[in-house]
């Protein structure tokens, strides 16, 4: 589904942030992207949701080489990817409901067609009573859940989350991980960038470890190239 081959990335004429990055993400798999702060995790995610273009190398998304994909086809590719930003990036002037419905509205669906789905999803993430609330009035955890709901509402093939548990307490972090796990079981490939070692150790998933711009793939206990996420026995979720 996603293939990186010898990808290099530098900003302007600065040093390479990523060097010769090669990996593959299969449909329905679960990956962690790990590394110290500044290791290039966010840059790698940006390359995956087409917010940046690589300086060199090949990136293939859903079977299409992005270097040769026509510009007018890129929105269609982006609609297959849900992104949870580290800083949430919610639209403050829109309600929780409108924020979550945004991808469906952009995809051209009618409000009457998606209203039930959006409300159901918000109830599922525990925000059924905050549909009309504006993001500035929400807590960090609530914002995080809205951002996640927006990322998954259109049932993307790939979910990318940048430090999704970074702004919440450990209990909320676990709840969110359970949410990602459920999505993964529904068939969505999940890639989570985190520097939380404990979180990674708690789940059996393939790890894409970044160190000084170079990437090492550390297979989980399941099949190589990504596994369905499964919490370890001592941490039953």
């Amino acid at each position: 589904m996603i293939r990186f081959e010898n990808v290099g990335m530098r900003y302007g004429s600065g040093p390479e942030i990523l060097r010769d990055v090669t990996f593959m993400i299969n449909p329905g798999s679960f990956h962690f992207v790990t590394g110290a702060s500044g290791a290039g995790k966010s840059t790698l995610l940006k390359l995956m949701f087409l917010a940046e273009r690589p300086s060199r190398g090949l990136i293939s998304l859903f079977g299409e080489d992005i270097a040769t994909t026509p510009y007018e086809n890129l929105p269609q590719v982006r609609r297959r990817i849900g992104v949870v930003y580290q800083d949430f990036r919610l639209l403050d002037h829109l309600s929780v409901y409108e924020n979550v419905a945004l991808p469906l509205r952009i995809a051209g669906r009618k409000p009457n067609d998606y209203r039930d789905d959006v409300e159901e999803l918000l109830i599922w993430v525990g925000l059924g009573d905050r549909l009309k609330a504006k993001p500035p009035t929400l807590s960090g955890g609530e914002k995080q859940r809205v951002a996640i709901a927006r990322a998954v509402v259109a049932k993307p093939d790939l979910l990318l989350a940048d430090e999704p548990t970074g702004n919440v307490d450990p209990e909320m972090g676990l709840r969110l991980m359970r949410l990602f796990s459920q999505l993964n079981h529904f068939g969505t490939s999940v890639v989570i960038a985190t520097h939380d070692r404990a979180l990674v150790d708690r789940f059996e998933a393939t790890e894409l470890r970044l160190d000084q711009g170079q990437l090492r793939v550390i297979a989980g206990k399941g099949e190589a190239g990504g596994t369905k996420i499964k919490p370890r026995k001592e941490h039953k979720a």
Partner: peptide
């Protein structure tokens, strides 16, 4: 749960 009118707000 609150309900929404589904009206499209300006983006």
């Amino acid at each position: 749960a609150e309900t929404t009118n589904g009206g499209a707000a300006p983006l």
